[in-house]
Design a protein around this nucleic acid. Structure first.
Lengths: 101, 101
DNA sequence: CAGCTATATAGCTGATAGGATATATTAACC
DNA sequence: GGTTAATATATCCTATCAGCTATATAGCTG
């Protein structure tokens, strides 16, 4: 299975997540903003679905896609392990400002 | 310039970040754990450096690499926009548990 | 400066990704 | 049931990526 990081590497796929992040949207709503063909959009949606990043439900001919947050949370938590790195810099800056004061 | 997301898509590059996350390390310390050749490691380090994800300093023939947290923080913050999605689920679960209690 | 160590760069190659066009599928509507 | 609408799948093509081997560079050490 393709990893969340790999899936998110593609700009159009990130854009799709942003577009449906507000709430579920049919495919046709995505084809406009992304400057690629409808089949290309469907291909990305398939990849997103297989990676568990989106879910679909059918409404007539429409297919409504929405974000599944679980993998995003996992990614967020992976990054969390580096949090101390940027926070320590912040600490240093604060310390510096304290010293100046 | 190649995006942070693309850089992070490669498993060996993520592993490199984990390996030097604890503190700076010479290239030779990375070649073992990663099961790829030394030139391949150097190639990944170059990409990481160009994307601003690592910094180097020289110590004799050694080159010591360390993480630059800035792009990681930005990625973290990008993901933050979806935080409400997984938190709302949590809310639902909590509500459900409340109802059961 | 010769030789050794550590790392980087060059050049090649096979695999894969992502795009396009053409076609199939599914569901509504007359 | 035939047509239109919305989306998915198939097929093909090109470009890029990540690996390898060979070689270059930089810096120590005798």
């Amino acid at each position: 299975m393709i990893s969340t990081f790999e899936v998110m590497a593609e700009p159009n796929r990130r854009r799709i997540l942003e577009l449906i992040g507000e709430g579920e949207r049919p495919v046709s709503d995505l084809v406009g903003p992304l400057k690629i063909s409808q089949p290309a959009v469907s291909k990305h949606l398939r990849i997103l679905r297989q990676a568990g990043l989106v879910e679909v439900r059918s409404q007539a001919q429409r297919r409504l896609y929405r974000v599944r947050s679980e993998p995003l949370r996992e990614m967020y938590e992976w990054l969390h392990q580096y949090r101390r790195l940027w926070e320590s810099r912040l600490d240093k800056l604060e310390n510096h400002l304290d010293t100046m004061a």
